[in-house]
Amino acid sequence: MMSHAAYVFTSYGIATLTVLGLIGWVVLDGRARRRELAELEASGIRRRSAEPASGETR
């Protein structure tokens, strides 16, 4: 049988780990996608709307 404080700290501990994990996943996912886009752009592949003089009227 754990003490009451142990239940409280386990709860906050698991909550902290879950939230940090979620934040870490979102940040790393974003970085990886930006890197992929940069690599594609470096190899000369661009979105039509990002190309100069693509005739887009905006």
Partner: peptide, 19 residues
């Protein structure tokens, strides 16, 4: 932030297809 990542992910997919 996750929506932004998802938009970027779709752009990467579209660009790879284009390539």
């Amino acid at each position: 932030a996750a929506m932004r990542n998802e938009i970027l992910r779709r752009r990467v997919t579209a660009l790879r297809r284009l390539a």
